[in-house]
Design a protein around this nucleic acid. Structure first.
Lengths: 205, 205
DNA sequence: AATCCATGTGAACGACTGTACACATCGTAG
DNA sequence: CTACGATGTGTACAGTCGTTCACATGGATT
């Protein structure tokens, strides 16, 4: 599995990765692959599971820290960046295969990401400002945040080298974006979402 | 190029697409490929250019409509959805290859997307609420919006069928997210972004 | 009418691919 | 000590791959 992650990080998508290449990298003979997985697809699913474990640890790390201060955003992003670097291969794999190749792998990633959003949503519910938010709205917010998170992670991974100036710029922009999102939170009214029908459908009383 | 788009949409990433497969789909002999492109990579770059043209037309369509009303968001998302469906293959190609395979193709897409963000930023500048925003802040906002846009497009493309209930849910969530972002805009103060250094660096006067 | 250029063809090559099968090795549980 | 299960090896085969080269064709330019 490590070899597969390394090769995927080196440029191939999982679908373009040949069984023989993989076993060559590991140092075993091609047929030995079948001792461990019946399929490349099965390998892919295993890698999804492993990578998602890394992602969950990100949430757990965030939970451990006390994020109640005024610089929640800065510290959250910092945790994110640290974890992306510590698990480069896992994050890279998810980024690559999220829309890339095999349908089953793609489906697994999508489902896991949805689950991840739900987890984040329940964490968000603990913040005083979000106390009164409905579950759906929390989910919506979580989606927005996960989205920003994933895209930041992808940008960092694409950046040429660690500790580059480019990475600092990415982080700064992400922090700004999160701050802008959070500025809207106190003024949010969920029911405004149903107003879009007000022109076409009369609403009595 | 159409055949390549079709095959990529059918599941292969561009890197996993074989020259022979492609020419088989077109109905010509493998060697005839070289009459048009020296490389698969070159084909990829051509497809990036073509697909980006579709994206730009999205902006142009948005400019044509008068978006000054109170339901800017709803109508913008509607334009997006319409264009995604009208150019399924192009959007799908970009989504797939953005983090997928060939490094050159990936680089081209990233660069073009940055350009696209800049275009959107200058369009945003025309809105009265954003009149006084700095260029960088506009770029930041544009990045956030493009991000949401791209991710919405990807979700729509992954949704099972057109006109599905799933798609309606995606659209609704996206509209909510955009509305939340826009709620923050009136309260934005750019200089707050530099406050993060206030602990470590003394700021006189 | 003669010529050229763009496009497509066909055969051929050596390299790589996935997978089947019989066999080797070796740590460990009985 | 023996037997077994897990893991790896070697050989083999038929299919696909990218790329080469000489050749065909047919519409447009002269």
């Amino acid at each position: 599995m490590d070899a597969a992650l390394a090769l995927v990080a080196a440029g191939h998508s999982l679908g373009a990765l040949s069984l023989r290449q993989l076993t060559r990298e590991v140092g075993i003979v091609p047929t030995a692959f079948y001792r461990h997985f019946p399929d490349m697809e099965t390998l892919g699913l295993a890698l999804v599971a492993e990578s998602m474990h890394s992602l969950r640890q990100l949430l757990r790390a965030a939970r451990r820290e006390d994020l109640s201060g005024s610089d929640v955003i800065r510290r959250s992003v910092e945790i994110l960046v640290r974890h992306v670097h510590a698990n480069r291969l896992h994050f890279g794999f998810i980024a690559r295969e999220r829309h890339g190749g095999n349908a089953a792998v793609r489906g697994a990633i999508r489902q896991e990401l949805r689950l991840f959003e739900s987890e984040l949503a329940t964490d968000l519910a603990r913040f005083p400002i979000l106390e009164r938010w409905s579950t759906e709205d929390l989910q919506m917010l979580a989606g927005l945040l996960v989205n920003a998170m994933v895209s930041t992670a992808e940008s960092i991974l694409d950046a040429p080298a660690r500790d580059s100036r480019e990475e600092a710029a990415i982080v700064a922009t992400t922090e700004k974006q999160l701050r802008l999102i959070m500025l809207g939170v106190p003024h949010w009214r969920s029911d405004a979402s149903d107003r879009k029908g007000k022109d076409t459908r009369a609403e009595g009383a």
